[in-house]
Design a binder for these strands. Structure first.
Lengths: 145, 145
DNA sequence: ACGATAATCTACTAAAACAATAGGATAACA
DNA sequence: TGTTATCCTATTGTTTTAGTAGATTATCGT
């Protein structure tokens, strides 16, 4: 149970977009530089976010990416599910057909609770919250003056 | 963020042991049959649980495996960490050295919260709880009369 | 002592997921 | 019309996962 780089990179990338919300579009190159992520890899991650309707793009010179919705309306859960996949700890959570195994129902309950715990966190935080946290830590940190 | 079969199988296996706690040792073969898991694969998973001190074994005829501690003293977190690994959503949670990236601290906080949410669930449940749940669902289920 | 039983140990492997990399096509601006 | 930057498709090396295979060792009942 480890986050993929896909999710970590992608979350940082979309946060960069959120930090620039309302300003000019942000280019892949710029994000990749700021976040120290491979240009080409990031391209694919952003494509996923775009396909999910979280991000939109402008082509050509002075183009780039921006949020497709205001940051208040983007919950981290959407981003997470887009990048990380469906977050189904066990198959039987989605396909609760007859389960022949004796000890399975009890463990399934636990996997369900884990899923709900994770979703609980991700549903309660929006990109706007992240932006706020990010700006606050910028102010108080020695590193980001 | 999906559970590995390692963890799902292993959890079911140790629950089988918990269900037989106080009785005769349970053999790999038996568990593998009941839980429909490859004999040889299960062998390795149980070895992990044994190395972690959660399970002990008796060799030879009428041998097998049993819990090393009473089920009340085994929290799911121990089992989970043994099978799934350290559950570190992001490396920087463990190595909080200077982080050059602007938007990173905010996402790191989120990964921390996810970790705590998962641990919260896993710390609050013991094998004894699972046994109780398991027996209760046996009683009320049509499938397990 | 002997044979059956069941754990233990080590090595190998097929398949999938992951983390990129490469290169060209397309659209838009100037 | 050239430059910029997105878009699209394919390929690749590495790691992890989920097993298989086979030999060895300890223990018990007879």
């Amino acid at each position: 149970m480890k986050l993929s780089s896909r999710t970590r990179y992608g979350m940082r990338a979309i946060l960069e977009l959120a930090l620039e919300h309302g300003k000019a579009p942000l280019q892949i190159k710029t994000i990749a530089e700021r976040e120290d992520i491979s240009n080409k890899y990031l391209e694919q991650l952003i494509a996923m976010l775009k396909a999910a309707g979280l991000v939109r793009s402008i082509r050509g010179p002075r183009g780039g990416y921006m949020l497709a919705k205001p940051p208040e309306e983007i919950h981290l859960k959407e981003i997470f599910l887009t990048l990380e996949g469906p977050m189904v700890p066990a198959e039987c959570l989605e396909h609760p057909e007859y389960c022949p195994r004796c000890s399975d129902c009890a463990t399934r309950e636990i996997w369900r609770e884990l899923q709900e715990a994770v979703f609980g966190v991700l549903e309660s935080v929006t990109l706007a919250d992240l932006v706020e946290r990010s700006l606050r830590s910028k102010k108080t940190s020695n590193y980001h003056i």
